[in-house]
Design a protein around this nucleic acid. Sequence first.
DNA 1: CGATATATTGAAGGCAATCAAGAAGTGTGG
DNA 2: CCACACTTCTTGATTGCCTTCAATATATCG
Lengths: 241, 241
Amino acid sequence: MSCLVSRLRYYLDISEDDEKLVLELEKQEVNYKARRTLNLQQQKNNLFILKRGWLYRYADLQDGRRQVLRVHYPGDIIGLTDIAMCETFGDLATATDVTLCPFQKKHLDKVFIQSPRLTALIFSLGMLEEAILLDRITMIARNNAVNRVANYMLELYSRQKIHTNNTVFTTFNMPLTQDVIADALGLTNVSVSNAFAQLKQENKILNHRKRITILDPDKLKKDLNFIDRFFEIDTSWFPNA
Amino acid sequence: MSCLVSRLRYYLDISEDDEKLVLELEKQEVNYKARRTLNLQQQKNNLFILKRGWLYRYADLQDGRRQVLRVHYPGDIIGLTDIAMCETFGDLATATDVTLCPFQKKHLDKVFIQSPRLTALIFSLGMLEEAILLDRITMIARNNAVNRVANYMLELYSRQKIHTNNTVFTTFNMPLTQDVIADALGLTNVSVSNAFAQLKQENKILNHRKRITILDPDKLKKDLNFIDRFFEIDTSWFPNA
DNA sequence: CGATATATTGAAGGCAATCAAGAAGTGTGG
DNA sequence: CCACACTTCTTGATTGCCTTCAATATATCG
């Protein structure tokens, strides 16, 4: 069963023809162990569908530090951001063991030609990611370390809900190290550690052995002005099937 | 003459049929004076093509501060980011006098059905914006005030080159106030002022009366690791006309 | 011209970075 | 199953950059 199709079905009825279009892209499979890096430059013109595991995209900076740009979950299409560019930037690193389905950028044209409706959905999901990046900019630009970490945990929580069809509890797996979280939020591992300590003391978020517990998600969302953009998209304008 | 069509033509040959599709969206026109705000909530289901002037999108925060999310130039489509969402967020404010062409979200479906090629271009431009947001996150998360301001000026410079078909000089109009720049970069107006003072002293960037001079753009780009993502996009995978 | 908006400059304080050392956790091979 | 190496996390002290607050100067608009 394709987790991309299942994610798309969360938002929209997908016809059998459309399902075939997607499955066409998932023919190949590659596996990687946890904590490996994949050089994207070598994979030029390839996109990936993530079938299993956690993966993150990062960029190395001049001074040796790095910036984590995005974390991917099963059902994500990886590389759409680069679709406009001749050269890709950044690399991928695996947080857990993963399974990827690589496919050629070119093969997307079939989707664009044969299914305006599916195209509109993929387009919308892309724009949704953009809105979430705007939220993240606001968060990084204007919040202190504690709120950044709390906000990020809420985002991971909300994402998992969609990717697992709402079967996620307030305790969930979070395999990212504090170094990775720090690099995602523009902090240091020291600040992230201190932030978790404070969140624990305030009875808001517990973390123990790669597992996170958000004690009262709704209250925390309200306190942080967190907007959950994942659970619904507007399909009213979509071309008919 | 449509500046959106002209911008699209910068990247791709646009057929006459495709041009008609775009012009269809620009039938209405509305004018606004400088330094006004437009409530986006009321314009639900509307997108805009910006024909003239500068406009920026911002979000009000709980504590009274605000975050500037994006600056728009003539030829931009405004609101694509919200296309997936039932509710919009944030507001628009005019930096100069502007002319907008509002059109219904619904009317986009014609583009998706009739021109996969034009759809691919609009999609790619959207993804390009996303890549630029990733750059901005890196910049805000990892750079000091001086570099943030310098980097942002380079971005504005590069954008204007595309939007005016390369007819922009190292001195150009920059109608944003330092408050707006601060709110875009997660700084205060004080820091922005100090940053400009230092950039002036180092003979890198001069600003005087809403005009910016970048003394040696290429050197500055290199020093800041600035990547210009605007000047080219990969159209090789696009569906044929 | 006067009123308002925008920019400059200085002083003091706070938050996160940096540096450093040690503790806890994880994985591997014998 | 344990020992060892390595990674990840914690905690404390110091430093630096940006914010905040405040006052003045300059620019812009009606």
